[in-house]
Amino acid sequence: MDETILYADGLYHVYESKAEDGNVVALRGLHIDMKAGEAIAVVGPSGSGKSTLMKCLGGLMKPSAGSVSLAGKNMTRLTGQELVQLRQKTVSFIFQEGNLLPDLNARDNVAQPLRHQGVSSKKALKYADAMLEKLGMAHRIRAMPAMLSGGEQQRVAIARALITQPRLILADEPTGALDPVTSREVLALFKELHENDGVSFLIVTHSKEVAAFADRSLELRDGRFVAEHGESIDVENLTKDRELIIDETGTVTLPPDLLVRLGGAGRYTVGNINSGYISLQGESVETMGKMVLSSTCPACKHDYKDSDEQLCPSCGSSRPMVEA
């Protein structure tokens, strides 16, 4: 189980844009090393590059720079056809919105991935029916997506993801649209897959429970993993239990709250440096005035009161620093 299932190194992606601000850099030199059987949660504010990350890691998109390896195969070297085949055998996706094919009913939706791999309709449908039954959708196998509730759609989507027996599941807020009960059921299923079948998970989430399910969590900011949290990540308060990541290029990002406590941006001299230890001495620091965490959420007016939360619990946007 020490086999690396997913490995990405120096992943950059730039979106060309004619906007005033120029091109948008979505990923800035991202690294990840995921072992088979791991469950990793990705947390971070909106706009940090989560969708782009999913697409690149899943082989749906070629990054502007950097390499991605899936199950030991470097995807940048593969042709379109080989890429598809690799994906078919290795990875499945689950999105926040079910993303079902609108013109096919539930069982056809679930069977489709197998069909794409050349499995006969008969067999594919058989397994689709079984999968849907397992997920409690037996009574709705012939329903059209438009007729299903959000939760039902998600269950179908999950069935579709599972039917190819993937080794890795990439999920983007899989429980985002679900009610708590359903969410828990889905997580229980994930747990089962993870523990019994050794399926690897990379889940983007805002949710406590999901993060708790993961072995470790990576904090994504501005296109990089800046910090890692252990099993007991507190999504609402990322200051706790945080381990900063210094990647192989030596890049490190200080999350805003640390930056505030350090005093601000500027030039620092290196004080002591030993194995596993470094001290920095600020020479010329642009104090950020006194930057404090804002007391209300600018988007939804949620009152943070005295907490140190970095993310707004109501709407999820990050909490900015303001001058005192």
Binding site: L114, Q117, G118, S120, Y127, L162, L189, N196, D197
Partner: peptide
């Protein structure tokens, strides 16, 4: 997997 037996072998796949 997960309690359902997906019994497909190599010959079932195009690849």
């Amino acid at each position: 997997m997960t309690g359902i037996d997906i019994d497909l072998d190599d010959s079932d796949f195009d690849i």
